[in-house]
Nucleic acid binder design. Structure first.
Lengths: 105, 105
DNA sequence: GCCGCATACCTAGTTATGCTAGGTATGGAA
DNA sequence: TTCCATACCTAGCATAACTAGGTATGCGGC
């Protein structure tokens, strides 16, 4: 369970440039060293949600000898949302660190 | 939203010694510098859940000139669960850091 | 040729979990 | 005696991630 931070991770995966759903899943898996091996049923709905929210835009692409893909890009709103999510994550993780560490610190 | 890490935080709040629900809420609020100001409707069900799971035990106490309180203590299972949760949090937060930081690092 | 696998997309429905919004009761202060 | 802080509880809502399906195509092996 990613517990609400999935959106930030997906946005971060698109920061380097547009990508399609399947590739996003692979990127996340590699970046997290296998920790986040997300099922499609998690990622696709998330992409739709983020597009609905205006943080992503999508376009169908068909490479010369390949299959139809839906390629997502960060919108401006998405890029700034990513910034906020990163900050929110920083605050959140620090607060949890403190709350958990209190016993030993 | 605490997104699944609430249990760990509650267990950690009881690590220093037994406490009752209201006090636990206060402890968490102070430890997190106000970030986690949890409503009772969040904490009480969590306490019941943790007791059901055998990680906490509870007893009714009535101080000489005070009100009836339900005091929770960490069980052995609870203490070891806390250890695991802490480790899990460490792994999780590191993975998120990596996944989020990948774009800029 | 065709069988199966990896790629690539999608959705309905389940489950878990935190929160909202209520309710009950008591001790102490104004 | 009225009100607030303390102290507990629950039903029901909202959301989010996941399970478990379904569709379709390109490519390699047999």
């Amino acid at each position: 369970m990613l517990k609400g931070h999935l959106d930030a991770i997906v946005l971060a995966a698109l920061e380097a440039g547009p990508a399609h759903g399947y590739a996003i899943i692979e990127t996340i898996k590699q970046r997290s060293a296998g920790t986040f091996d997300l099922p499609e049923g998690t990622v696709y709905p998330a992409l739709h949600r983020l597009e609905q929210a205006g943080l992503l835009s999508s376009a169908w692409m068909t490479p010369p000898n390949g299959r139809r893909r839906r390629v997502y890009s960060l919108t401006k709103a998405g890029a700034s949302a990513l910034g906020e999510r990163r900050k929110a994550w920083g605050r959140f993780s620090q607060a949890v660190d403190t709350a958990l560490g209190g016993g030993r610190a």
